[in-house]
Design a binder for these strands. Structure first.
Lengths: 84, 84, 84, 84
DNA sequence: GTGGTCTAGACCACT
DNA sequence: GTGGTCTAGACCACA
């Protein structure tokens, strides 16, 4: 899955969906670090602010935990949304 | 085909699809100029910025080439996307 | 109350607090429109993105309702946070 | 005044003294931003950590106020040290 | 006019 | 190196 600039869905929504799917699929394991913001910025060819907005959405949903100076991590599975 | 203001798809996406189809159909031949931005603006009854965004998308896909001060042209067929 | 650039509190938090207080005080009445984003931008001398972040926070708390193309409004009092 | 690499006085002490003198002299006005850390780094040819240590000293003395994400500012004159 | 999205860049604290 | 904040500007749909 990838970002589609022609898709009217906001890019940050698309990115959040991609990362969410990877977490569900186990590509990113609980308590393990996610790629850094700048890595995602490069991988998907979008601005850092867009990456940050996607990450904030995931954190608010309970999928991830963000720590200043260290990075974002997959949340422990207990705190995942129940409709997952 | 025409622009549908009630369709939630962004207008520039709709316009890009229309132009793309015309190129595929041969209505606009390779290396020939496309209608000017202001012509499209009138033909479809949309804002010039919308036209520009559609043209930019087509150029990024490889369908068109934009030359400052002269206009946009249908790209040589070799550079068209392969999934076309 | 006003924005203090020397206060380490993020500007958007300061702005949200100001607007929240004005709503509580009745300066902005329920169902009435708030100043536009550009008006706040000028009144407080901050960037529009900062204004938007403050407005989003207030909307998430239930103080305001934002409608694209029309503006932000004070929410009906029933939906205000209970700890207010 | 300038940094003297041969002076046994720590570089951050020297730098802090320079900035402190500029504030007293009015070269940097109250509530106005100081040069960024990277600017000082270049102007004086020293490491960024050295700049940060000097700035921290000035902030602790009450000469400056540092705000995350925004920069360092000259403190309001009321909060300056009295033995100045 | 309004708010919504995205970009690019700067600067900071923290590890 | 990481994430956190702020700025400035562009462009869009919407009303």
């Amino acid at each position: 899955m990838t970002i589609d600039q022609l898709d009217p869905t906001p890019l940050w929504v698309q990115l959040a969906a991609i990362i969410r799917d990877r977490i569900k699929a186990g590509d990113y394991a609980p308590r393990q670090p996610l790629p850094s913001e700048s890595q995602m910025q490069q991988e998907f060819g979008i601005a850092r602010g867009t990456v940050r907005r996607a990450m904030r959405a995931l954190a608010e949903e309970g999928w991830t935990v963000t720590v200043q100076g260290r990075g974002s991590f997959v949340a422990p599975q207990e705190s995942w949304p129940k409709d997952a």
